[in-house]
Design a protein around this nucleic acid. Structure first.
Length: 277
DNA sequence: TGAATTTGACCTTG
DNA sequence: CAAGGTCAAATTCA
């Protein structure tokens, strides 16, 4: 057998390189977009970014993680406390209800992920669970729409990624079928009226990736609804490229994020895995 | 007192 | 069997 530690380091190094390339390309694109309103080169450059990031992802994927786990950003690496289900409490119910909902959610076209310094999205959620996740420093929180009784099936999972600066990864499943808040209605109107807002790349000061404090649904197309954000650079710090919220004066002005659909990643990754194995 | 949260148990999937 | 997602009784809060 081979030295797996060395392999890992080599892969990691390449991953860093690939992601840095992606970042540089993104920066070029940003400059380009600044100069030109419309240009055919934009698409190619965006593709280049996607390829670089996907390449990096595929290398990470070689190890253990699924792309969904990669999207969860390494969860700060430390060994998690076992199980979340500790302690002693009543032994309960022997008569289990016929079936408990669907377990192990699969990412469908109706799910998407957002990274944000806040979990507040203008909706009213009810927490229904919390779980310690392996290799994640912070527990994952499970929420469902408060209006579940109206038949609203919207749920979300909130995973704290980082303490300083505070960052959460929120994964949404299904859309609200209950009455939307005025804020959200306004947001959806804006996005739907401007399809160019979907899948776009944009950056904050210092060329850093950032997300809106009040995240909105980015994609309006059915295939691209489940999204993942990527940091611009990789180091021991899971989110080194993200600026402190306090240092930003108008986060709102650059709220869109780098977004890549799971479908794209998984398609590309599945191809890359064969190459790298 | 009702609604929301907490948390151990239960269940499915890989 | 481990891990992740959900349920629901117990507890806390307004």
């Amino acid at each position: 057998m081979e030295n797996s530690g060395e392999n890992f380091n080599a892969v990691k190094k390449r991953l860093v390189e690939e992601l840095i390339k992606g970042r540089e390309s993104a920066f070029q694109l940003q400059t380009l977009l600044h100069k030109l309103a419309q240009d055919s080169g934009q698409e190619q450059l965006a593709m280049k970014i996607l390829t670089s990031l996907t390449e990096g992802l595929s290398m990470v994927t070689l190890g253990t993680a699924s792309s969904a786990q990669i999207a969860s950003v390494d969860c700060a690496g430390s060994g998690a406390a076992a199980g979340g289900d500790g302690g002693e409490r009543k032994k309960k119910k022997t008569g289990v209800k016929d079936r408990r909902g669907c377990y192990k959610r699969k990412r469908t076209s109706d799910s998407w992920t957002e990274i944000s310094p806040t979990t507040d999205d203008g909706r009213v959620w009810r927490k229904y669970g919390q779980k310690v996740i392996l290799n994640c420093e912070y527990p994952r929180l499970y929420y469902r729409c408060t209006h579940k009784n109206q038949g609203c099936k919207a749920t979300k999972q909130v995973q704290k990624i980082k303490e300083e600066p505070l960052l959460y990864q929120t994964t949404y499943f299904s859309h609200h079928t209950c009455t939307a808040t005025p804020t959200e209605l306004a947001q959806e109107l804006i996005l739907e009226s401007d399809p160019a807002d979907s899948n776009l790349l944009s950056f904050g000061p210092n060329n850093h990736l950032y997300s809106s404090p009040n995240p909105v649904k980015i994609s309006s197309s059915e295939e691209d609804k489940h999204m993942v954000c990527f940091p611009h650079s990789i180091s021991s710090d899971p989110w080194p490229g993200i600026v402190e919220p306090e240092s930003i004066e108008s986060k709102q002005a650059w709220s869109p994020r780098i977004l890549v659909s799971y479908d794209d990643i998984e398609e590309a990754v599945s191809g890359c895995i064969r190459v790298h194995r």
